[in-house]
Design a protein around this nucleic acid. Sequence first.
DNA 1: AAATATCGCAACCGCTCTTGC
DNA 2: CGCAAGAGCGGTTGCGATATT
Length: 299
Amino acid sequence: MGRPPCCDKAGLKKGPWTPEEDIILVSYIQQHGPANWRAVPTHTGLLRCSKSCRLRWTNYLRPGIKRGNFTDHEEKLIIHLQALLGNRWAAIASYLPQRTDNDIKNYWNTNLKKKLKKINGSESYSREGFSSEKHQISRGQWERKLQTDIQMAKQALSDALSPEKSSGLASKPRGYASSTENIAKLLKKWMRNPPKPASSDNMGGIGTPWKENKSSNSIEMSEVFESLEVFESFDSSNSDFSQSLSPDQASLFQDESKPEVNELGQLTLLEKWLFDDGANQGKDDQLSDIKLDGNAIFF
DNA sequence: AAATATCGCAACCGCTCTTGC
DNA sequence: CGCAAGAGCGGTTGCGATATT
């Protein structure tokens, strides 16, 4: 008795999003905020399911997303958090406010996994390595290693949260690619590599994906940029954007950003524990609590 | 230069969790 | 309390780009 699909798949478009679709989506969200995804396709006329819209927004169009190269810093942080949390990408992503869980997951699968395998051989921070190693060494040794790992994670975490060290991690607007910027970048790229002449052209216009938009005549680029002016307020400074919104909308967009984690008051037990430099006494107790937590440490 | 292999990323799928009635 | 629908999450896939033969 499977659950029916989230939306009627018939007639819905799949695959890469087009600039036009992105603009429609961003425009709608600018007006209504990123909520009630169910209503998005019906209100915008997008032939996408609500889920697809949400995904596109959260992984790509949302203001504050940094794309491209991961810094060494981010890399270390991901490695340690993965060792601590496992493949809980959303949780890991919450420590890297500029990155999406999808991005981190992809980066882990394509880069870090291999890197760690290469570097560590038998010694590994990965779930597999950790677990196999655990069986080879004594409990004491393993716990000492765990302490070291956590110490390193703690270091990486505080480094990441320290504004002067982390290039833009704590200073939100700088280095952030806003929706407009994301779209603009793509448009530039798109224009640099103009669409190839149509071959088997059953896609065009609204249905034409970014990379293979075969009919630039389907929408004049001037129109695209004209439309982009609508999102001027998105640009480079989220605060400017917020000011142009109603308080409700502004808060929606603020909430949309990944949570700031540099406020100890909001930290979870694990985070507090990681930060708690002084009290090494009693950590064994806390450690056992964490162990009991199941897959956080034991895999 | 062409064919093939590999890589990286965006997007989809299916499951679970949450929420409202 | 149970059900349905929406939202979120992690795993997987598809495909274009790039590297290698």
